[in-house]
């Protein structure tokens, strides 16, 4: 600390008692305080580095799009037309002008409600079935071939049969989501359960944990990273399925909105809806990933 200032230029070569401390102190008078990036500046710089590139790309694409479809008589509307014709949809997601004229945010919420029921059910049933299949050799032998065949059935192929069974659009749509999302949950959970180290099983045996305790205290936490991989794939598939299912079942919802807009030739509305669907799907994926990160923290490290 008592080092004189003439030591600033060369690095301290002598046996300094605290090298890092003295080096930092000595650097101070040589430089202006503003030269070092402060905390918020570094963070703002990092933020700009992540946000700017996609903004530039989006702007470039919009310009290209405008040039390509800007002429009168083009097949698709350019961004300027979308803005002028669907401004209300873009700016206010939650307006209500009557039962069939509502904002896209509200339509998305209706679709999300179906997804929550269908996906939630798929998550619960999927984890339970996955645990069964992962734990029992006979359950694997019996059920796995069935799962492998059923999971390849496209979501919409389930819709007619589910309409026949439920005789109502809403539960049918929920069922389609359920049956779409459940397979990756089952399969990933089963893999996760099979990966539980023998050590954890031994601990459970020595403690004489019963089936329920073993399920909640060992199985689920240990397989959590795998389960969340399945859930993340599942929520993506749910969102794919709901839009398609709603196109056919009608009612309120973002999928039906697109179909309705197509039937009344409102192409700008469709494009705005596509952006909504993309953003919500992205948000759902990130949400499940975030929950997974919080829940599984510490699990992957042994």
């Amino acid at each position: 600390m008592a080092q004189p200032a003439f030591k600033t230029v060369p690095p301290p070569a002598g046996p300094a008692p605290r090298p890092s401390g003295s080096a930092r102190i000595l650097r101070l008078p040589g430089r202006a305080p503003g030269a070092r990036p402060t905390g918020w500046r570094a963070r703002a710089g990092a933020l700009a580095a992540t946000i700017l590139p996609p903004l530039v790309v989006i702007a470039a694409l919009l310009v290209l799009w405008q040039i390509a479809f800007g002429k009168p008589g083009a097949a698709l509307p350019p961004p300027s037309v979308i803005w002028s014709e669907a401004k209300d949809l873009i700016l206010d997601p939650f307006f209500v002008n009557g039962s069939q004229d509502i904002g896209l945010g509200l339509r998305v919420l209706t679709s999300l409600e179906r997804v929550i029921y269908g996906f939630g059910l798929a998550a619960i049933v999927g984890v339970l079935l996955g645990a069964l299949v992962g734990q029992s050799v006979w359950a694997t032998r019996g059920l796995d071939p069935l799962f492998q065949v059923l999971r390849t059935v496209p979501p919409l192929a389930w819709l007619p049969i589910s309409l026949a069974a439920f005789r109502d659009a809403n539960p049918s749509a929920i069922f389609v989501i359920f049956i779409t999302a459940i397979w990756p949950v089952i399969i990933n959970t089963a893999v996760g359960i099979r990966q539980i180290p023998q050590d954890y099983r031994n601990v459970a045996e020595v403690l004489r944990l019963n089936t329920v305790e073993f399920f909640f205290k060992i199985m689920v936490p240990s397989a959590a990273p795998y389960i969340f991989t399945g859930l993340r794939i599942g929520i993506g598939l749910s969102w794919l399925a709901i839009v398609a299912a709603e196109m056919l079942t009608g009612g309120v919802g973002i999928g039906f909105f697109i179909w309705d807009a197509w039937n009344s030739s409102r192409l700008p509305d469709i494009i705005v809806a596509l952006v909504y669907i993309g953003l919500v799907g992205f948000a759902l994926d990130r949400l499940v990933a975030l929950v997974g990160r919080v829940v599984t923290r510490g699990v992957s490290v042994t």
């Binding site: 060992i218 959590a224 699990v299 992957s300």
Partner: peptide
């Protein structure tokens, strides 16, 4: 059968990493 009257200290500790 295993039981807590014969507790085991496992070679690789076998602590549950999420706890």
């Amino acid at each position: 059968a295993p039981g807590p009257d014969r507790a085991v200290v496992f070679q690789n500790h076998s602590l549950l990493p999420w706890l």
